[in-house]
């Protein structure tokens, strides 16, 4: 059906997509996880400075989240060039992907941590646990199943963002779908790339859900 060149191209596109998605997710968590924790911990603090920082952080997160990804992608081109040296290709796409998804991850992390029972945190404070210990020993481990579910949501969202980057030469399956499937009306390539994207999303989603369930001591 396809020539070996096309198969090669699609295979390479798949790898690029996975590369962009996984690296971006990892970086988004490196930024978003502490940000999410900071959002929870700073909320309702007795210190007005900390409360102020919480508000500022919240506003920044909301602003970044409300800019449509495609616009952010274009707007960030100078910034991307500054960091990676180019604005084309899959590595360049990682920059806007991280900028767009880190605030999203921060909100996911925030909501997961907020699910942890206040009473358990209070109990830890009663034992003389410092804030750092409360975060490392209570908030994060207790929220683990929910954090994993959140990361499955994050990774699939980032994957679909990465496909959008195809419009500005971002590389990966999205790029192939746009160049061949859309601009050249090659429906067969369009279908195969979309199918591959669906399969990848399903697999990532399933892995996330399974991991969350296996790790959750409230169920088994």
């Amino acid at each position: 059906m396809f020539s070996s060149e096309v198969i090669k191209m699609i295979g390479f596109g798949l790898l690029e997509t996975l590369y962009m998605t996984l690296v971006s997710t990892a970086l988004a968590y490196i930024i978003g996880l502490p940000l999410g924790v900071a959002l929870v911990v700073s909320e309702g603090s007795e210190n007005p400075l900390v409360r102020g920082a919480n508000t500022v952080l919240g506003v920044i997160v909301n602003l970044l989240r409300s800019v449509p990804f495609l616009i952010l992608l274009v707007a960030l081109i100078p910034f991307t060039r500054f960091i990676v040296g180019t604005s084309i290709g899959s590595t360049a796409t990682i920059v806007p992907l991280v900028v767009a998804s880190a605030p999203f991850v921060a909100r996911l992390v925030e909501s997961s941590i907020k699910e942890v029972d206040r009473g358990v945190i209070e109990a830890a404070q009663c034992m003389g646990a410092s804030m750092t210990k409360v975060i490392y020993k209570v908030m994060l481990p207790e929220a683990k199943p929910s954090l994993i579910v959140g990361s499955a949501i994050a990774v699939t969202t980032i994957l679909s963002y990465s496909a959008m980057a195809g419009f500005v030469g971002g590389g990966g399956l999205g790029d192939i779908a746009i160049r061949y499937g859309y601009y050249r009306y090659q429906d067969d390539i369009m279908i195969i790339t979309v199918a591959l994207l669906v399969v990848v999303v399903q697999i990532l989603q399933e892995i996330g859900m399974r991991l969350a369930k296996i790790g959750d001591r409230r169920i088994n």
Binding site: G119, V120, E122, A123, Q125, C126, M127, P141, E142, P145
Partner: peptide, 16 residues
């Protein structure tokens, strides 16, 4: 606080 133990109505154990 380490020399004060506390127990609660909802037990507040670490579920994980």
């Amino acid at each position: 606080r380490q020399s004060m133990g506390m127990i609660f109505q909802q037990f507040n154990l670490l579920m994980q």
